[in-house]
Design a binder for these strands. Sequence first.
DNA 1: AAGACGTGGGA
DNA 2: TTCCCAAGTCT
Length: 358
Amino acid sequence: MADNAAVLREWYRVHSRDLPWRKTKDPYKVWISEVILQQTRVIQGTPYYHRFLKTFPDVKSLASATVEKVLGVWEGLGYYRRALHLHEAARQVVEQHGGKFPVHYKDLIRLKGIGDYTAAAIASLCGGEAVPAIDGNVRRFLCRLYQLSLNPASASDNQYLKKIAVGFLQHHDPGTLNQALIEFGALQCTPGLPDCQMCPFQAECLACQNGVVELLPVRPGRIKPKTRYFTYILYVWRENGIPFVLIRQRATKDIWAKMYDFPLIESTEGFTSAEYGTKPDSGIPEPEPATVRQWMSETYIHQLTHQRIEARFLMKQLSAAPALVPQGCFKINLMEFRGLAKPRLISRFLDNAGWDLR
DNA sequence: AAGACGTGGGA
DNA sequence: TTCCCAAGTCT
């Protein structure tokens, strides 16, 4: 084959973006950037990269932080499990590597939240290891270049793709080559409407020659999002004129693991304020003291990749703090709650209807 | 091995 | 409005 690696290096020399995490070979910083960029656009992740490193400049500061603090910095980025894994992996590094962040694939792959791609990226960028870092960009480029209808769920297909990528890493700086492969997929060999006229591989690209660029790589079938109906119950009261609410920390299995929101009734259908309490599964008992007045918010539609949440907020204003706090809930002053990590849905509600709570 | 896990942006 | 995502990992 023509020297694709050389073509790619030259393309990268000319076209690579000046991204903040490319200025360093510190594996800690590269790790943070790689995790932030998982399933996340550069434009969306960049402010978080700066904020995260400012808050946690090194692995030890991250390891010694509380999980609440880590989640708080991550608030708004999504896929919050990443923040939990980051925290856990930092502790692993302190305990198992004396706080020195590893740069070898075999060590990296053992860390929580670091999979095949991220381990290879850090190992090649920071350790010079010749391991292929195949992300969505690289997969797209290679599948098109060689017209491969690989099954993304097939382990053997992915092994095959790795062998092809390794071919690009021979005799050169593997970190730079991996970066170049990724950048090429991100900027030139884009998912939709790539500008193949401008592509240095135009003559060699099998997908381009055969007019199947748009069909590759093969995408897994998409599942239609399921609708869930949330009715949040907001117990609101005042202490010395300051508004308080009842909140709770979410479980680890469902969406928004370990983040904070309000007591919640989930139903198979939405129900109205009037229906609240009349349906069998509208659980939470009437508080003591009794509700002074209550009203229902408008419906908030929260569209996610795999689910659509229709949420409403039933405000129940109490004359004083509830005598009995439901299991798992606790009282908090509304201002303090603003400082806790919460899903976007809750932030939106607070920004929007927060006035009602005063 | 398939499904879950978020968000904001663009077509 | 609705759909498709964007530098994956975990279970």
